[in-house]
Design a protein around this nucleic acid. Structure first.
Length: 279
DNA sequence: AACAAGACCTGCATGC
DNA sequence: TGCATGCAGGTCTTGT
């Protein structure tokens, strides 16, 4: 499900609903996801007040009063559902958490590509899942200069490089195509062939695309829901993603001549772009 | 070092 | 109807 806007939306919703609550019980319904759950997951969480919930890259963080952080990733199909029922869990509800205040949240993940683990707050920077992550795209740390440095030795096409979390975090398959479309840059261009001007344009387009998607509550294709069940609606604003054969919304080119939006495979993932507009 | 390909899973749409 | 195939918002590991 999730790229940065979806994870951000989920974390904001969880934060609104759960911060200040005290965890009353935890039900772990399978041994793990992509990796096993910590054996003491339920014990560490139980009885703890939830102090803060935030996102870094595509990872969610719940800070507990004991200094431990519930750290995890939604993979492709993970979601948190605040309308969960302890007595009637859905198929693929793998972990259920209830609070003394009466909230019940389920972590739901059919494909189980997600992660849920624990880490001391003071050790987050060294955690293997987080060490080596690049800058947050919506922070002041992500500048054209930083970006240029990161791609200087990257001859691979810009689109898969944009999705490399050591370059910049949070950009997945949808927003990589969308940002490149807005920046009028071909996904096929070697990353280190982009000029300073193009990199600056791409930084701005990434930030604008992600910010708009957050406002829209993310994109709901299949699995993504905000935690209260509300759908995201940024998918209605996709210019190119999953629109192969449709006319480009900007260049008004002759569909019969150009064939419209193109689809190709890069690093095993679908890319969508307009060959007229993006060079 | 950097890149491509495969692996991990389930569910859904499509075509026969 | 059933079955096979391919595809899906992500990362991690392996081999070149």
């Amino acid at each position: 499900m999730p790229e940065l806007p979806e994870v951000e939306t989920v974390c904001r919703g969880l934060s609104r609903a759960l911060v200040g609550h005290r965890i009353a019980w935890v039900e772990v319904r399978r041994a793990g996801l992509r990796q096993p759950f910590p054996a003491d997951l339920a014990e560490v969480l139980s009885g703890q007040r939830i102090e803060r919930i935030w996102r870094r890259a595509k990872y969610y963080h719940w800070l507990l009063e004991n200094g431990q952080v519930l750290l995890g990733h939604l993979g492709m199909s993970g979601s948190f559902d605040l309308s969960a029922d302890r007595l009637a869990p859905r198929r693929h509800d793998h972990v259920l958490i209830g609070t003394e205040e009466g909230a019940c949240v389920a972590y739901h993940d059919p494909r189980r590509f997600g992660v849920m683990t624990l880490c001391a707050f003071d050790a987050l920077a060294q955690h293997p899942l987080l060490a080596g992550l690049g800058p947050e795209p919506l922070s002041e740390d992500f500048t054209a200069e930083v970006f240029a440095q990161a791609v200087a030795r990257r001859s691979a096409p810009i689109k898969p490089v944009l999705m490399d979390a050591s370059v910049v975090v949070g950009i997945g398959n949808i927003y990589a195509s969308e940002a490149l479309f807005r920046a009028e840059i071909s996904p096929l261009r070697p990353a280190n062939s982009l000029t300073t001007e193009e990199l600056a344009r791409l930084v701005a387009c990434i930030q604008q695309t992600l910010a708009e998607a957050i406002v829209a509550g993310g994109s709901t294709l299949r699995d993504h829901r905000q935690v209260d069940g509300t759908l995201g609606y940024f998918q209605h604003r996709f210019a190119v993603y999953d629109r192969a054969g449709e006319p480009c919304p900007n260049c008004h080119c002759d569909l019969a001549r150009t064939g419209g939006i193109k689809r190709l495979t890069q690093a095993g993932r679908s890319t969508f772009y307009c060959a007229e507009r993006q060079r």
